[in-house]
Amino acid sequence: MHQQTETTLHRSVVRENPYQPHMARIVRVYNMVADNYLFTLRFVDEQIAGTFTHRPGQFIMLSLPGTGEAPISISSSPSRPGVLELCVRRVGRVTNALYRCRTNDLVAIRGPYGNGFPMEELMGKNVLLVAGGLGIAPLRSLLWYAIDNRGRFENITVMYGARTPQDMLFRDELVSLVGRTDLTCLLTVDEDPGGDWKGHIGLLPQLFDYLAIRPERTCAAVCGPPVVYRFILKRLLDLGFTKDRILMSLERRMRCGVGKCGHCSVGYKYTCIHGPIFTYWDAINLPEMI
């Protein structure tokens, strides 16, 4: 009888292994700005490629065989399945190895992981996305999900700030949204050394001057470097947003993605399974969160 149990468990290592990465092919490498590429990936296994889905705000564990594994947020929307888009800055060992890859090279992926944005909470409400710099990476998934399911949301507003026009991620795509009538897209750059930026110049919080929003019917999703949180959170509170209506996406060191390895723990929560999307209320209550 024991023998039978062992065989079952042995099989779980092979078949139901949560750490099992699946091979994926790089189908496109797009140089968005210096040291910030957009990688488009497709699982080699057609069944996985055809069935993989995620919630906006979730992440995957990306393996570069021989180099290691790192958590990367998914920038594409589940409303556009078949491929995964990862907006990756070259900062660490794994991302450096990824930058040496070319189209058709193989990497490995497992996931998706994390809670993602609470879509049932966001549907039927106004959605305000505020991103600074690389913070657009996880929010872009939510943005396109909302656009592709336009009827399920009230007003959609996106505010994005980059240092210069040359640092603006998804620039063409976002600029193309500016003229649309079904959503509001506000873009700004801190400075414009090249002199070719036709939009707003100034810091991200200044975009609030152009905003007409009813906080009681709105959820805000914020992502960016610490300076963004410092100014934007206060601004949102001043506008009357309650702390559980402000969502933020966090970054932590992760080795497992499934709530075991301990690295991503903040206070008494794990970023990988309880997050990476937390409310501002969580952030206040969990030590060392931001």
């Binding site: 062992e6 468990l9 499934v258 075991k260």
Partner: peptide, 15 residues
Amino acid sequence: FGKGYLDPYYLTRRK
């Protein structure tokens, strides 16, 4: 290791 995502390495050894 035995709740949420199951860790098959740990659980196999435990058995």
